[in-house]
Design a protein around this nucleic acid. Sequence first.
DNA 1: GTCACCTGTCATGGC
DNA 2: TAGCCATGACAGGTG
Length: 699
Amino acid sequence: MKYLKRWWSDGGGLLHLTILLSLAGLRVDLDLYLLLPPPTLFRDELLLLGCPTSSAYALRPFPASGGWRRADQLHPKCRELDPAALPEGQLLREVRALGVPFIPRTRVDAWLVHSVAAGNADGAHGLLGAAASASSEGGVDASVDGGSQAVPAGGGDPQEARSGPLAAGEEENAPVEPTVEVLDAGGRASEEIEVLRERLEAAGGYSSQHEENQQRVSVQEESLQQNNEDENNIAEKPDKESEKSNESRSERHLNVTDTSFCLQDLFQLLSSHPEHSSLEGISLGDISLLPGSSNDGMNSSAHYNVNFSQAISQDVNLHEAMLLYPNNTFRRDLVARTSQPQEPFLQLNFTTNPEQILSGTNLTGFLPPVDNQMRNLTSQELLYDLDVNVFGEINLMSLAMEEGFDPVEVSQLFEEPDSDSGLSLNSSHCSTSVTKSNSSHSVYEEGATGYSDLESFPHHDLEGAVGYSPEPSKLCHMDHRSDPGLHEEIAFQHIFHNHTYHLQPNVPESTSESFSWPGKSQKISRLLNDTDRNLSRDERRAKALRIPFSVDEIVRMPVDSFNRMLSRCYLTDLQISLIRDIRRRGKNKVAAQNCRKRKLDVILNLEDDVCNLQAKKETLKRERAQCNKAINIMKQKLHDLYHDVFSRLRDDQGRPVNPNQYALQCSHDGSVLIVPKELVTSSHKKENQKGKRKSERRN
DNA sequence: GTCACCTGTCATGGC
DNA sequence: TAGCCATGACAGGTG
């Protein structure tokens, strides 16, 4: 499973879920692109992306053993629906009137379901447009074409939609084994995001002024409120119809979200292949995706939000089921989790717990439980929460301060006993987390700005691992694209999904007793702890203060960019101080490393010099020995020559010259004289004395 | 427990 | 003058 989330500086983002399922030889690749427009992105702007705005498209073609889902396999109420023939707005109303699950015009205004490949290459050509496929006569090609035709119904360009993030065929060769990885900034998805972004910017709706956005948000919220009221009225009809109808299982979950519907399709598919559905002991036919949503009065927009949130979790639950519960524990897990009424995730909807979708993080266990009062919030309130929560989740410090967060707690957060600088995180983390969690809960209840500070929660409560990657602050308005000195990929973040699986609440509770959830929690807790331990102290500090830049960026950033960053971003004094400290320490750390490296190089060079000198010394010694040897040879030869010369010398009387009384002396002109030794010794002494004097003068 | 080594950090000075 | 860099000194972690 791959997933990518990328946030843009104005609050928009795109969530990419790639779910690879390998079920008894049947491979299913699910790609979900959740385009999360910025708060002020309007429907028309969104349509410029070629994105459908109705979840009718979620009724997409679905492969059945190598073929596309036929139209007659689609939701029966959508078979007659032709979004291409309906004007904008009417389509949505029609879909809603049919009781087909849809995504209301909240901030999550479009969501796209990518191709499904069932082990054959043909499955890669799916592209949305299930509603159009529903209106078609059925068959593979009709479904595919319907997808492309459906886009212009909302004003988009089908060609662009084809070339968009849902470009087909890239996942069909993906590894079958479920894996979790985060696409890097240079990946295909990121490039596609940039294409989308450029389109949106070209449309002039993406980079609009903040003030205009605010006004548009207010206007949109008013219209949304009105729409939601209308929707509530309309939604009552399908509820009644759904109660009367006794249709397929998918209809029994009429009010589930698009994703749940899609997964229901998957389950149907698997159920239709009992030889496959027996995988891991899962009786797919018995799996109900959501509790009786048709009777809970949740047909309002809030209800759709609820299911949208759960939809993501369901997708990942399949993955989780295969990864974590291979031994027939899947159902027990489902039952257990469903039977936990206090588990927040089951109660939270997308609006009340947007971080689950935005961060893709399973916050179950540490997000404050949402009580009935929360569930009774009006759609407008929920949408307002969505505004502030979804697109303004970060900047913990600022928000914390604004929400009355005690700075002392922050300072305590930075007290680390083993820290030489007195700054750290861990020790007082848990207590602080509890406070924050509680405050967050109250914030939710008040309908005001809420945040879910992952860092603030104890790790052992986490069910989804969160790799730290600084997110751009909500209050940071600097344009990374215009600043070449800054990285544009700051917003990349690891996403870990909610692995909660939802079942109907009437599942016997007895089965939940056999479920040992803490085991998994401990596993992930260890994972988190290991991950956290891998972080440096500054990284943990930056994480705690929600510094919107990574330590590496802070350190390596040129000074001009660094100063611009500090001036453009609305950072607290504490954050600025920490950023400067991080930069100073980071620079000094690198300098120290370089210094030690140089010092080590110097030492190594000196050692090399020593070795070289020692070798040279040995060489000189050898040369000296050779010279001495040569000198001795020369001396011997000279001695022999000397005696040979004296043996041939004769005095005036013809007698041999005694070498003990005479000596040979070479004059400057080359002549050789026979001199008595007494004279030679006296002259030698004088010369030796002169030489000593000269040498003494030289010294 | 001690020691050597590595690494991070701070203080300081030079550029 | 601010910032960067180099370096000595110190402390904590680790084998």
